[in-house]
Design a protein around this nucleic acid. Structure first.
Length: 281
DNA sequence: ACTATTTCCTGGATGC
DNA sequence: TGCATCCAGGAAATAG
């Protein structure tokens, strides 16, 4: 399940493979397609575009696109291809002769001969495009704050007056973009806060600790290429290694690495939440 | 304006 | 071995 560190790893890997390449054609699968934009619009924005950059915004992968123009005029950045991988979505770089696997929903053919394929068994992933050349064309922006950029004061302000459990608040993409179940649990453990604590009940000191822990855990995870639980692999098909560093996520019943108390698992807002009842208050 | 709950989807794990 | 049931999860939709 790609969260911020996994999407960051994938975006960097894709950038390495496709930056500078030109999209020749786009194939989109049969309905019901996992699209946020209509199929014709996706094809229209992507085809004959050059990929300038691939980067992460929240949990989204954004391909910045420009259209070459005639007579030595500078190319124009006209749009973006935006991919959300959901839980099981993958973007594969393949040769054209590679067998097309089940659940392949989109194939983007590049001038280099390579293909970018969107494969997503569970179909929670989404494809969309943004126009940069229309009047409202400011491009794609995540609704919430970027966890790695946001100032501590801004982070603290996100939770003011919120009665929802801190775990739910961390997962709310309108507040913070990019945090999912793994890194919510891991950052709460590292800052000693129970997931059910009401967001507004946290002290300033606790919020400062949480912010620092969240940035720390995200940065460590990016450095290790993300967490490979279930079937996550990066753009080169390589697994990450941060799952070996998980202190609570997926460790129900196992001893806390700090105090030895068995890790608890509870369900908050329909998501499993792992914590140490002794280390987290 | 918030918050909580339900829904989507399928492979893999579990239970009888 | 086979069949049914449950579970995982992000985010949009729905309900309160």
């Amino acid at each position: 399940m790609p969260e911020l560190p996994e999407v960051e790893t994938i975006a960097r890997g894709l950038h390495k493979w496709v930056a500078g390449d030109t999209i020749e054609s786009v194939w989109l699968g049969e309905k019901p397609e996992p699209l946020k934009s209509p199929a014709h619009e996706i094809a229209e924005v992507l085809e004959r575009s050059r990929i300038v950059e691939v980067r992460r915004v929240g949990k989204h992968i954004v391909f910045d696109l420009e259209r070459p123009r005639k007579r030595r005029r500078l190319p124009v950045r006209h749009g973006q291809w935006i991919v959300h991988l959901g839980m099981t979505g993958r973007l594969q770089i393949t040769a054209p002769e590679t067998e097309i696997t089940k659940h392949t929903h989109a194939i983007v053919k590049l001038a280099s001969g390579r293909e970018v394929r969107f494969v997503d068994p569970r179909r929670f992933g989404r494809l969309a495009v943004a126009h940069l050349d229309s009047p409202a064309g400011a491009g794609f922006a995540a609704p919430g704050a970027e966890p790695l950029d946001s100032q501590t004061q801004r982070f603290v302000d996100l939770f003011r007056g919120r009665k929802t459990p801190i775990k739910s608040a961390l997962l709310n993409q309108k507040l913070l973009s990019g945090v999912g179940n793994i890194y919510a649990d891991e950052s709460l453990f590292r800052s000693g806060i129970r997931p059910r604590r009401r967001a507004a009940s946290l002290t300033l000191q606790q919020l400062h600790r949480l912010h620092a822990a969240l940035q720390e855990v995200l940065r460590e995870a990016i450095a290790l290429g993300g967490s490979s639980v279930n079937d996550y692999v990066d753009a080169d098909g390589e697994e990450g290694f941060f799952q070996l560093q998980h202190r609570v996520y997926g460790r129900e019943g196992e001893p806390c690495l700090v105090c030895g108390t068995p890790i608890k698992r509870v369900v908050i807002a329909g998501r499993s939440s792992h914590y140490c009842g002794r280390c987290q208050k």
